[in-house]
């Protein structure tokens, strides 16, 4: 049984092909890079539309299967940017109706957790999912993935990217901030915001930009920005670990590429005698394979939509989705 998954919530258009045993046959993608500034939703959507065919063909070629071999479709129905979601959904609906196969709406955040569980063989992790579009601490309990912490405003990846842009670093800012931070020595105090289980990064970003304008050393600022933001992320994740008493911690999303964040989270996991996992880079970032695999899990447990029920949900919450493929 083969599932073709289409991802298109933000800047990445991806097509993955996965079989029912979890073997990834193809994971093709193209990523929109804005000429200047951040992601423009309409331009990203146009990029997806223009590249959908190319990415689809590449996935089929890599997997060495024909489009008729696909048994059903899965696509990322949310959360994400409206125009991008609608473009990916249109591609998925068109393919499903042309092939006359079932179609499944997949929650993007849950797909990140599921592909990580697959590649890392993790059973029941507390997951810190951090990217340019999302920041959540997710753990499974009683039939659903519950959110044990989330940002109240901007995602941490967005905080790093926008800071980078404001101080003149090239897009995306995150990796450059990480490189510069390695040469930072002096800690410049920045607002550390943990509100109960939740986080906030907008004030941190604003203050870091302000301190740069006031003449603070850029290396020191990058260092301080990372240390402050990541300490808050790890603290909230630790609270979820302490509360749920789970013995696995997983880090995923685009910001999972950051070595310092990995190191900090690993130290925390060790203190709680929990295993620590980071999926390979291609499965941390947005991709079609994670959608296809989550589609397989859902399909095997009887989840499926009629075409008219495949509307996109820009603000689809992680904890609104029933997870029949997991027990407990």
């Amino acid at each position: 049984m083969l599932c073709l998954g289409i991802e298109g919530t933000a800047h990445t258009f991806g097509v993955g092909i996965v079989d029912s045993r979890g073997k990834v046959l193809a994971n093709a993608l193209k990523t929109y890079v804005p000429a200047k500034g951040g992601i423009h939703p309409r331009e990203a959507a146009q990029f997806h539309a223009a590249n959908a065919r190319v990415v689809l063909d590449e996935a089929l070629k890599v997997a060495s299967v024909s489009i008729e071999d696909i048994d059903f479709l899965a696509f990322s129905a949310g959360p994400g940017l409206g125009p991008c979601l609608r473009t990916a959904a249109t591609a998925a609906r068109a393919l499903a109706s042309w092939l006359d196969v079932p179609i499944i709406s997949v929650n993007h955040c849950i797909a990140h957790v599921e592909i990580g569980r697959l590649t890392e063989r993790a059973k029941d992790p507390v997951t810190l999912y951090v990217s340019g579009g999302n920041t959540q601490v997710i753990a499974f309990d009683a039939g659903r993935y519950r959110v044990f912490g989330e940002t109240l405003d901007i995602p941490v990846g967005n905080c790093l990217d926008v800071f980078g842009r404001e101080v003149g670093l090239p897009y995306p800012g995150g990796p450059t901030v990480e490189r510069l931070a390695r040469e930072g020595k002096r800690y410049i105090p920045l607002p550390y915001v943990v509100k109960g289980m939740d986080l906030s990064f907008s004030g941190l970003m604003t203050d870091a930009v302000r301190k740069h304008r006031a003449g603070a050393d850029l290396h020191d600022l990058c260092y301080s920005l990372q240390e402050t933001a990541f300490a808050a992320l790890v603290e909230v994740t630790e609270r979820a670990v302490a509360h749920t008493e789970k013995k696995e911690v997983m880090l995923t999303g685009g910001v999972a590429a950051n070595q310092r964040l990995r190191e900090m989270l690993k130290l925390m996991a060790n203190e709680h005698k929990a295993k620590f996992f980071v999926p390979p880079r291609e499965y941390c970032q947005d991709c079609g394979a994670m959608i296809a695999w989550t589609g397989i899990l859902a399909y095997k447990h009887g989840v499926g939509q009629k075409l008219r029920e495949t509307g996109v949900k820009q603000r689809w919450r992680t904890d609104q989705v029933d997870i029949p493929w997991r027990t407990g």
Binding site: Y187, P189, E227, E235, M264, L267, E271
Partner: peptide, 13 residues
């Protein structure tokens, strides 16, 4: 003390 965060943040918090 939390070893994952730097001394300055740890002590201050």
């Amino acid at each position: 003390a939390k070893r994952y965060r730097i001394l300055e943040i740890d002590k201050q918090l």
